[in-house]
Design a protein around this nucleic acid. Sequence first.
DNA 1: TCTTAAATATGATTTTTATCATACTATTTT
DNA 2: AAAATAGTATGATAAAAATCATATTTAAGA
Lengths: 143, 143
Amino acid sequence: MLSKSSKYAIKAVLFLAIHSSEENKVIVKDIAKPTNVPQAYIAKLLQELVKAEIVTSVRGPKGGFYLNETNLGHSIMSIVNVIDGEDKLNSCMMSLEKCNEEKPCPLHFALSDSKSQILKSLRSKTIKDVVKEVKLGASFLPL
Amino acid sequence: MLSKSSKYAIKAVLFLAIHSSEENKVIVKDIAKPTNVPQAYIAKLLQELVKAEIVTSVRGPKGGFYLNETNLGHSIMSIVNVIDGEDKLNSCMMSLEKCNEEKPCPLHFALSDSKSQILKSLRSKTIKDVVKEVKLGASFLPL
DNA sequence: TCTTAAATATGATTTTTATCATACTATTTT
DNA sequence: AAAATAGTATGATAAAAATCATATTTAAGA
């Protein structure tokens, strides 16, 4: 469902949401280690997120990444869309195309409710929303 | 979530569930075309399913594949397990390991309900179950 | 202005997944 | 018994995803 890349990206963004601010930028190395993502790889993903204006970056010494208020308002879905492409998640679980009520795939009725729920959740939850929940106890590195 | 391979496998199995019987075996060519899956590829997947006793095969002329009553009782999940491996689907959506109530990942609360629903559905629905729903209108090749 | 610390750009390599090809084995039919 | 028709086994190739490496650009600070 979510590619490794999207998962990495979500992790990194949530990490920034919690640990960064304009006055407190975080450098890639310090994102890579705690999130357990290869540094060069997360760097590349972050660049895409910067281009998409989901994270903010500043170069040079004292530079790094952070999320501003606008950034925090983006949905989790928007991260996935940037990394995996727009309709990776909208595609049918069963066949390789999209299915719907009129043209349901064989697993449509078994899965579509839960699937729409997940999509809805990803679409409606902003980074900020999730951070609240994280602060209530979610951890980055479940074992 | 489901790999292309699992999707192919599910398609093929459901196709057989609908169109085959011991007296009416189906050869790979006639599975590949209507399900829109590369023939050599589905052949390979079918072999794994045969080994796992999820589909039945007979060699030689008048041979082919079919599902017997036992085969029909398997869950959709069992197909995925054979093709993608046991815990591909059980892994956490967010981090790369498994998460749970005690050690939730940041997206745990947002997604776990729907996810368990999907898993439950895949685990509990047998091939036979899904076939009933298919006969009520699902199609194999949604556009 | 030079050095240093950061992101950025680009592309090479590796690994995984998907696909294709070919030779072999089993069973039916003639 | 031979020929034909099916699955089976194995491995080669191609494409995609993930990872690694390196050079470039930008900005801060001495």
